[in-house]
Design a protein around this nucleic acid. Sequence first.
DNA 1: ACACCATGGACTGAAAACAGTCCATTGGAG
DNA 2: CTCCAATGGACTGTTTTCAGTCCATGGTGT
Lengths: 238, 238
Amino acid sequence: MTAAEYGDPYAVLRPVRSGNTFEETIEHLLQAIRVGLFPPGQKLPAERELAEHLGVSRATLREALAELQQAGFLDIRRGRHGGTYVLEARDAGRQGSVPLEPAQRQDVLVFREVLEPAAAELAAQAQLSTSAREHLLACLADLESADRGSYRARDSRFHIAIAELSGSQSLITAVTDTRARVSALLDEIPLLPANLEHSNEQHLAITEAILDGDGARAKSLMIDHLQGTASLLRGFLT
Amino acid sequence: MTAAEYGDPYAVLRPVRSGNTFEETIEHLLQAIRVGLFPPGQKLPAERELAEHLGVSRATLREALAELQQAGFLDIRRGRHGGTYVLEARDAGRQGSVPLEPAQRQDVLVFREVLEPAAAELAAQAQLSTSAREHLLACLADLESADRGSYRARDSRFHIAIAELSGSQSLITAVTDTRARVSALLDEIPLLPANLEHSNEQHLAITEAILDGDGARAKSLMIDHLQGTASLLRGFLT
DNA sequence: ACACCATGGACTGAAAACAGTCCATTGGAG
DNA sequence: CTCCAATGGACTGTTTTCAGTCCATGGTGT
């Protein structure tokens, strides 16, 4: 809101299109991969099915997939049990990215601190099924056994899993989107072992609070966790 | 999350397109009008400018505008001081709408209760400029002087104004979107004078808390306010 | 070996969306 | 009274996107 007037219609009326379908499809898929939704080795849904879900023609989806294959993110194979497979993360993905404007950085961090504590609280208050609990624990275990290359994606996946437990589709979408933006920020700063270890302790504590059904604790732990990341980011990105 | 498995990629990987550009453009404009961003009598930005902001060609925008004119929402005039003017609200707008699924209703109400209290708190904690304060007070005054026909739109506008003060663009967008969905729900139930008066008292109290810079109070008042609406809705829409 | 069939690959014609250009209208400035 | 400028209106050729169809590949099960 630096320059815009209050009451500016354009702050509220958002763009209908932000690029062509092809580019937006790439962006969606890339986000899903970066955010750990499709870990390396996993097969994407079949083209026909994926195209339908994305609301995009198969031709356009295939253009996007070809581009991602070209860039080294995907391995596409034909045949009876062929498919589109996710390759090991390659660092190149972020190189061309432009650092965010300070206002946008602030926006991401603020919005995240609105969404994720609420998600943790809702998750703790929800009636969690056995499969829900197992999903959260599986994401946590994956994260704890991550190496440097896979950490960011699994971290995102864990945070999204909490949103999934909240039961609100809108919250899942918003958290996913915000996580992808935070990830882009985090990729600009180093991954320090000390921070990493501390984060893992926090992840464990948050998980326990959620599984205990202690909403207030889950929320407060999540706030601490996010503030740690936020101050780290603010420190590095002066 | 009723039927979907936890970890379902499709809960996270959202559609790229949800219709053709023409339809989505109509939806965006209609939302902006319903949400009180463009009150009756106001002129929309010129076609060339609006098209650019929406990321849509002028031809497509014009198709959408023509449709909205046809439906009685807009008055389009040519000439030196011509333009696209918003007409008085007509009730027909909602008639064809299908009632939301219970899960979606729940989602809207939950997500709203995440966003808006946070927005109120952030607004109160922010360094508010004079113009920001005036904007909020203007929206409040409009709302207090509303009649039955204009109430919903001005109510939305007021809630969005609070999000604007928070300074987070993502929050503005999310609140706007959620307000539009809540409005659709509210249009299915009667507007009772008693509720209306109570709401107006709450709006005043929230505004005062924000202008006082009392974040905790603003947040807590907003929670009360939303829960009133939520239980009203849950009562009517059994 | 062989047929099967789910998957990716390739092509075509139609429809949608776009960018660019020029026209028509109309109230105000000079 | 005339001209100007800002606005909507209309047309054209190009590019993108789409839906539909058929082909190619290569494990699986018989």
